[in-house]
């Protein structure tokens, strides 16, 4: 089984962190093969940023693929660029706080996550990416949720341990949204 993910947004939204969080979790807590490929412009903040993650039971062939199982869109320009990149039967996760244009497709599952507002409500807009990460795991179950959370504590908590409680809350809010959006 091979699952591919694109996370797309602008620099500063934590795009790479979502991709790396899944990748480190796969590498360090499972027997799966994983690749991570970042793509971004010269800007540190505000420029386009996206990353490709492939998690597989076999060695990964193509780390960058045109069509993916899961697309995570954090801003409007990314929606325009990647809206056709979801495979039929795949899932599109939208940061619905700022992304308003939603593609008219009935062959994919579309999950609206009010991640920006949830993060704001939790007290730190920066944890928006953890809400999105939770939603992806809740809906897709590509990795055990607890492993992802532990990896977040280990990697993000290393520098900012005081962020652990809010990151956990953000992740769990997303997780619940993802679970509820699961297609039966």
């Amino acid at each position: 089984m091979e699952k591919s993910i694109i996370v797309a947004g602008f620099g500063g939204q934590g795009v790479m962190v979502i991709g790396q969080l899944f990748s480190y979790t796969a590498c360090e807590t499972t027997d799966k093969y994983v690749t991570f490929f970042p793509s971004y412009g010269a800007e540190q903040r505000g420029g386009t940023a996206n990353c490709y993650v492939v998690i597989s039971d076999e060695p990964v062939g193509a780390p960058k693929v045109e069509k993916v199982d899961y697309l995570v869109v954090l801003n409007e320009p990314s929606m325009q660029r990647f809206k056709d990149a979801v495979l039929p039967g795949g899932t599109l996760f939208i940061n619905s706080t700022i992304v308003k244009n939603v593609p008219d497709r009935d062959d994919i599952n579309i999950v609206h996550v009010d991640a920006g507002n949830i993060a704001q409500e939790l007290g730190n807009p920066k944890c928006m990416n953890l809400v999105m990460a939770g939603a992806v795991i809740g809906e897709s179950e590509i990795l055990p949720a607890d492993n992802v959370l532990q990896t977040a504590f280990k990697k993000l908590g290393a520098k900012r341990p005081e962020m652990n409680p809010i990151n956990e809350k953000a992740f769990n809010r997303g997780l619940a949204i993802g679970k509820a959006a699961k297609k039966q």
Partner: peptide, 9 residues
């Protein structure tokens, strides 16, 4: 550049 930028175990 791809091999340089990508991550893998």
């Amino acid at each position: 550049g791809f091999t340089g930028a990508m991550m893998e175990p």
